[in-house]
Design a protein around this nucleic acid. Structure first.
Lengths: 198, 198
DNA sequence: CAGCTGACAGATTTCAATATCTGTCAGCTG
DNA sequence: CAGCTGACAGATATTGAAATCTGTCAGCTG
């Protein structure tokens, strides 16, 4: 049979399937190899360790969210104020959806968190970077005043302030009734804090 | 020998010692009884379960912080703005100190968190209550405007926004250099958001 | 000879037997 | 007889042996 050649991409797809099926605690490299019909030695030809494989899958999964959010960042038709709120709501919605619809991959993400994986750091850096762009736009438009004149620190502060709505640690609270209202109150407070005083 | 009678207070003190020595994972009710020179059945006469004992010890430990903070709340010689910042810094400092100086009792506190103990809820309710008083004072003095006119929700939003600086989950980050600057930026943003616009 | 296999060493996990702990209570004791 | 003890049942934790997994690599194969 003309079995396709083994590529990193095929391995990632198979690993995602295996993780979805067994979860990060039970999924093994042997399972992934079995799903692909190869020996596990072949998988190690493409990924040096199991951790690297796990990280590559999670990175892909996280990048899907970042790509979605970048559209809000780039939306020139809206004010920075609107985009800031939209972006935060979209991030919250995306994370909550991931936690609910993809619990096993979400659990994998939590494993990386505990491992202090660079993938998570990069994800956070990327998200804060997006916030920096929105805040900078607001400053340029004369709508926002950054804290201590430091746009980077201000974006970081906004990200930290909303941590309850994007850190997986709090995933259990995301389905609590009233959580949206709590987020709205917090966002209103933050936007107010950013606004330039006339 | 005129051994003192066994009181709840003596049991609590002994339990605190035992917890400090062995930590929540290893400390047993038998250890506590041994420290007191009684049988473990006697301990159960005063506390219905081991969890109740653990909670009572932790409650006492948490209440020491709340008492300290209440002095800042009640300090009429300072503006609400100042007290808000002072209170948050004091809470952060107290938590960080507890994590560093009392790691075993801090670990016990984390156990209660995982157990969804009512003691933690009460602690949080009390803290938010203190914030409500500060925010209300600010509103009364004409310095603050509450979000959507709701002082309670506003205080809660401030508490949520600073969660990184008081939730034990983040204890590992509390000794990171630059953390104080990050907190200052966030507090500046929040205070600015609270301020009434002229 | 590039890519894959499968046997292997060491690390990690599983599992079941054993030990310890929690919570109860009948009865002892001062 | 109020307060304490210690034996007990069931729940939980520990332990060590066996099983499985990770990561390597010499050699096979198309």
């Amino acid at each position: 049979m003309a079995t396709e050649t083994l590529t990193a991409e095929r391995i990632l797809a198979a690993t995602e399937d295996v993780l979805r099926l067994y979860g990060p605690a039970k999924a093994t490299v042997v399972d992934v190899a079995r799903a692909l019909g190869v020996s596990h030695g072949s998988v190690y030809r493409h990924f040096r360790t199991k951790a690297a494989l796990r990280e590559a899958v999670t990175k892909r999964w996280l990048d899907r969210t970042t790509a979605e959010l970048s559209r809000i960042v780039a939306d020139g038709s809206r004010s920075a104020e609107d985009r800031l709120a939209l972006w935060n709501v979209a991030l919250f919605t995306a994370k909550r959806k991931k936690a609910g619809a993809d619990p096993q991959l979400f659990a994998t993400y939590e494993v990386l968190l505990r491992e202090n994986s660079g993938v998570v750091d990069e994800h956070i850096t990327e998200l804060v970077g997006q916030l920096v762009r929105i805040v900078q736009d607001g400053v340029d438009a004369g709508d926002f005043t950054p804290v201590e004149g430091d746009v980077e620190a201000t974006a970081r502060a906004v990200f930290d302030a909303t941590i309850r709505f994007h850190d997986p640690v709090y995933a259990a609270e995301w389905s609590k009734p009233g959580i949206e209202a709590e987020m709205d109150a917090l966002l209103a407070l933050l936007v107010n804090g950013l606004k330039r005083r006339p």
